[in-house]
């Protein structure tokens, strides 16, 4: 009988108030054990302070063929990037 532990995706917040980043996956019977396993597997070298886990099959992902429609429109909105604007030096930090 197949009784494999489900796969979980692990997200870890590094030491410096960063957002959680995907670091890898692991197997665990439930969420609590997945967090503990995440601690044991992915923070062996002081990599993190906070762990999120989510069962892999609960991740909704964009499909690769949507890449164009999803991301290309933002490429034309260059004004969203601060470097678009020319601010004179004498104005100071902004």
């Amino acid at each position: 009988m197949k009784n494999e532990w489900p796969l979980w995706e692990v997200f870890i917040r590094g030491q410096h108030g960063m957002s959680h980043r995907h670091v890898g996956s692991l197997h665990a019977p439930d969420a609590e054990m997945a967090i503990k396993n995440g601690r044991d597997v992915y923070t062996r070298r002081n990599e993190g302070l906070s762990i999120w886990v989510v069962e892999s099959n609960h991740i909704a992902a964009s499909s690769p063929s949507d890449k164009g429609p999803l991301y290309e429109p933002s490429e034309s909105k260059v004004y969203r990037h601060p470097t678009f604007f020319d601010i004179p030096d004498e104005v100071g930090a902004m």
Binding site: E4, L7, G24, S25, L26, R44
Partner: peptide
């Protein structure tokens, strides 16, 4: 011990990479 433990970790990372191709670790 830390070194041999790392090998287990490496195996784990690699199995996970293989699993993205549609095969299970078991």
């Amino acid at each position: 011990l830390a070194k041999v433990q790392d090998e287990a970790g490496h195996g784990l990372y690699l199995y996970c990479a293989a699993e993205t191709l549609g095969v299970s670790r078991d």
